[in-house]
Amino acid sequence: MKVFRRLALISTIGTYLVIFIGGLVRVSGAGLGCPDWPKCFGRWFPPTSIDQVPGYFDASRFNIVLAWIEYINRLCGMTLGILILITAILAVKHCRHNFKVMVGALSSAILVTLVGFQGAFVISSELEPFAVSIHMLLALLLASAMIYTTQHAYYEEDKRTEEKTVYPSRTQKFIFMIWIITGIQVVLGTQMRSKLEILAQQFPLKTDLEWLDQLGAFSHSHMGLGLIMLLLTILAGRRILVGTKSLPALARNATIAMLVLISIQILLGFVFMLIGMPELARVFHLWIASMFFGATLIIYNSARRARSHS
């Protein structure tokens, strides 16, 4: 069980690393660094020079740096896939009696396979905005499934956690609402990103701020929802930290993380509005959103468990 729990934790951290690398692929414009899938320019290793690019690919599409960025993303994704599949096998072997762990581990295995194959569609669609958003959403669902599995594996080892915990009333619903809004925000954000990429192609010589200006309703709703989330998170965070009896360490840390992460997100939002969109800030904006999503899920699971004890 201990091995399973550790592997589940490593896979969860791995999932977040791959989400980070995926964001990096996006902002560095390496999404089509390898124009085919699963191979890269028809080879199992990216070409090292233009002479190795097969004739059926236009040589102008070959950029060794972008090809390797995308290739490393695929290698990391594949390693993560293997880790998660081993986790699922261990779950079947050792945790058959625990329905929640089994559901979490098996869903993760299905999701990681799905993300991989859907990645092929993202490439063949030439980064079609909807396909990219689905890719991101599937990755978030995978992170959620891994968190769920890991958290319940911990509960399996220490059955007394959350036994004496009493959350303020309606915490579970409150957190669920924040979780859903976060999902909407992520989809809105990826759609905005896609629209910005289209604008960058249509008006290549305009600046970040000029492209942002043209987004209109999209960016206003993203900003508005962001501020609503900040308010809801502060309210929820305060209620949990002040009003919970015997708050477990994991939930406490997740609540603090939620508050810190939303504050950084709002700050990054202002950076985008005022000085444009530096690539580094964009990578972290996406990554922090996915971590925030995970933190809310940890609290939700904890509140649900506490409720089932009472």
């Binding site: 980070f20 990096l24 902002v27 560095s28 414009g29 390496a30 950029n63 060794i64 740096v65 972008l66 960025i69 840390n253 603090i256 993380a257 810190v260 690539e279 580094l280 990578v283 972290f284």
Partner: peptide, 27 residues
């Protein structure tokens, strides 16, 4: 836990900076 996040975040920011910079340069 939060103390650990700061150096990890900084290392990741450095890696990201390097990757994005190389990608920009290559274009």
């Amino acid at each position: 836990i939060f103390g650990l996040f700061i150096p990890i975040g900084l290392v990741m920011a450095l890696i990201a900076y390097f990757v994005v910079d190389r990608a920009k340069e290559s274009v």
